[in-house]
Amino acid sequence: MTRSTITRANKDGKGGGLFRRLAAGAGVLAFWLAVWQVISMLVGQELLVPAPLVVVRAFGRLVGTVEFWAAAGHSLLRVAEGFLCAVAAGSVLALLTTRFRLVNALASPLLHIVRAAPVASFIILALVWIKTNALPSFIAFLMVVPMVWANVEKGIRATDPLLLEMARVYRLGWWKTLLRVRIPSVMPYFMAACTTGLGFAWKSGIAAEVICRPVLSIGKKLQDAKVTLETPDVFAWTITVVVLSLVLEKVLVALARRFGRRYGVAD
């Protein structure tokens, strides 16, 4: 087989694979839309379970308004802010707790409390302390910090000591050892924490918005739609959150793959 034949075969294989994946995705989507439609017909009340088409119409109506984009944009910013701060803080805490026993002893109970306590408790407590607009970011931050902290700590502790010895013998130095050995060792744990944490940031951030109701927010829109019994709008806003969360996750993974191959991000 010549090189050009191999290349062509590979390209065909990739193209075929993409088509199959798209077809499979469409099939799964169609299945769940059908299930949704059947449930909606069985219930027979739009107020309880609106049909998919009704929700799509509501979504189309919302997307055409400036308010939709303003609310989605502001919620996105709040969640992203909380998430990014949590990633930074969680990583620093993990570094400190693996490096200093005292910090580990002092901080561990905090980690367990934040993990175990219900989100609602934090939201209600934080309402007393923090401005309404900053609360969703703070709650998203609080929910993601332990996840990043625990995972990065696990990654640091799992760094292969034999690789570190190799780095010492070949005198790679502190910086190169960090870039080429330590960071790549932690990267799978870090990426797992980020992808899971992003979902949690959305969930907790929107929950906080529902309770504290900042003017421009998906949470407030959800709550308003619930109060006015606009169930299709509740569904449409929920779909918005899911789509935003998925898009953000895909962007995060794509960026990590684009720039992080040499730092341990798997293809």
């Binding site: 690789l163 190799m166 005198r171 790679l172 190169k176 080429r180 050995v181 990267m187 191959r261 991000v265």
Partner: peptide, 22 residues
């Protein structure tokens, strides 16, 4: 070493080149 101690995230070439980069 008794074990190969290669960095799994680098290619063979990058593994060999790594100590040389200093």
């Amino acid at each position: 070493f008794q074990e190969n101690r290669l960095l799994p995230w680098l290619t063979a070439l990058e593994n060999v080149a790594l100590p040389l980069e200093r």
